[in-house]
Design a protein around this nucleic acid. Sequence first.
DNA 1: TAATTGGGTTACCCTGAGGTAAACTTCTTT
DNA 2: AAAGAAGTTTACCTCAGGGTAACCCAATTA
Lengths: 103, 103
Amino acid sequence: MKYTEFEQCGLKRSLDLLSGKWKPLILHHLFHEKEIRFIELWRKMPKVSKKVLLEQLHQMQEHHIIERIEKNGFPPQVYYRLHRDTKELGPALQILDRWGSSK
Amino acid sequence: MKYTEFEQCGLKRSLDLLSGKWKPLILHHLFHEKEIRFIELWRKMPKVSKKVLLEQLHQMQEHHIIERIEKNGFPPQVYYRLHRDTKELGPALQILDRWGSSK
DNA sequence: TAATTGGGTTACCCTGAGGTAAACTTCTTT
DNA sequence: AAAGAAGTTTACCTCAGGGTAACCCAATTA
């Protein structure tokens, strides 16, 4: 870790990007099933509204944390999966997951 | 932070605990100097008010992320350092730091 | 034709994390 | 006695992130 200024703190940046109210849960699910439909994800998270879940997903897309895949057909099928770059976080998130479970 | 059955996710817990507005920066400093005085820490973070910095430190204490050490003397000397458990996060935070720097 | 399904939007509201500014306390230095 | 230093507290305010509820659209099926 080499930063000194607020803006240059990669850790801050990472935590900002990963820690919305529902983002950790989304990540959790996406790390388990590499590809998941919107509606399925929503069913796994019954306490979020569609709107809020969509907001979180959109933000994560913008930040290249996840990808949206649209498959044509009916009913509409939209899948979400981890972005390539995000996979290298696997080990880190695993550590955090264990640590957080014991708190 | 209270958990509902649907939020029982160690990752969420971790990110909640680590990601206040100033906590990542505090962690950054504490990972570098294993022990730092309040006033010194504050000087390294000129944009926070004392009050807010204290709030963040107190929360981190409550969650056993850092420890507060009071040394008697004058002027008052209060040091903060990482809690033992937090040190095992080193590798994870390093990954996050690198990842966040490239975003 | 009416209901359903999956994905997404619109409009509005509310809470709490974080912000500012100032004061307090105890001891030291001038 | 006055000024400062370190750590902390008090009172008050602001705003954006998240919450609710309803609605939209296209295609399918009953």
